[in-house]
Computed example of a mutant assay.
Amino acid sequence: MRRWLCLLPLLWLAACQQPVPPGPAADGALWLERSAPARGADQRVRFLVIHYTAGDFPTALATLTEEHVSAHYLIPASPPQRGGKPVVWQLVPEQARAWHAGASGWGDRTNLNDTSIGIELENPGFEPRLLGQRWFRFPPAQIAALSVLAGQIVQRYGIAPQNVVGHADIAPQRKQDPGPLFPWQALAAEGIGAWPEAARVAAFLQGRPPQQPVPTARLLALLAAYGYPVTEGMDSEAQRRVIAAFQMHFRPADYRGLPDAESEAIARALLAQYPPGR
C-alpha cells in the first residue's frame, strides 16, 4: 500500500503533462466547443510583398500611418540598434490587413492586401537621368534586418518561395519597386524567395544567344503560369511592362521588357523548380 501511495504523485504529475484533449473552453460568457475542427481552413497569409518607400523615413512613416495607405513593417535604411539588435517598425499587426498592395494579382489571387504581409524599405527608388534612371542601392544593414524579419514571416506562415514577390511583380502596370538593385538572389540563398538555378537556365537556353527574340505570347504564357498578372487584350506596352517586371526581378542586367531567349529559359527554369500549385 505504501508503495502505491508513493507512486500516486508521480502518476498525477505524468497525467498533468499530457496534452489537453480538444473540447469546450471558456471564453467570457460563452463555452467554445473545439472537439470538431474543420479541415477546410488554411493560413490567411500566403504572400510576402516587398516595397520601397520612394522617399525618406520620416515621410514614409507619416504616410504609412495615415488612413489610406499602410504596411505591416517599415525598415529604415540604417536601422537603429537596441540591445545589439536592429529596430524595425511594425505598423500593422500581422493578423490584420494592411493597405499596401492595391490593385494586384498573383496566380489565381487578386487584391493581395487580403492575403499578404507588406514590408516597406526606406529607399529613394530612382531619379531620372538623361539616358535612363539612376537607382539607389539598399544598405547592407537594412537587408540584414529584412533577412531576419522576412525569414521569420516565411517560416511562420509557410510561404512558398514563388510567393515572395515585389510590388512590381503583382502590379506591373503601375509599380517598379523594389527595383533592379534589390538583392533577390542573395535572399533566395537564405531561403527567402525563389531564384532559378544556373544549370537549369543553361539547359533551357539550349545554346541560343541570350538576346535572341522569342514570341511574346509564348513568354507571357510562361510568366502567367508562374504567377504574373497577364490578361487578355493587353496592348504591346502593357505586355512589355509585365516582361520588364519579371526581368527586373530575375535578370536585372537587362529589363527593357523585350521577349528574348534568356528570359524564356529563366521562366522555364523557375516553373521546373517551383511547379504551379505546389
Rank of each mutant, 00 (worst) to 15 (best):
I117A: 02
N123Q: 07
P124S: 00
F126V: 01
A103N: 07
D108T: 10
N123Y: 04
L112T: 01
G105S: 11
A103F: 08
D108L: 08
S116W: 07
P124L: 03
G107F: 10
A103M: 06
G125P: 11
D114I: 01
G105P: 08
L121S: 06
G105C: 09
T110P: 00
L130K: 08
G132C: 14
G125I: 03
G125T: 06
E122Q: 14
I119S: 07
D114L: 10
R109Q: 15
R109E: 15
N113C: 00
E120C: 03
L130P: 00
D108Y: 05
Q95V: 11
G132W: 13
R109I: 03
W99P: 00
S104A: 05
T115H: 13
A103W: 05
G107P: 07
G118I: 13
P128E: 06
G118H: 12
G125V: 06
Q95F: 12
G102C: 11
L131T: 15
E127Q: 14
W106M: 07
N123P: 08
W99L: 10
F136E: 01
G125F: 02
A103R: 10
G107A: 09
F126M: 12
S116V: 06
D108K: 09
E122S: 06
G107I: 10
D108N: 10
R134W: 11
P124R: 04
E122M: 01
I117H: 00
D114A: 13
N113G: 00
G118P: 12
R129S: 11
W106T: 05
I119R: 09
W106I: 07
G107K: 08
T115G: 02
G132Y: 13
L131E: 15
G125L: 02
P128D: 10
E120I: 02
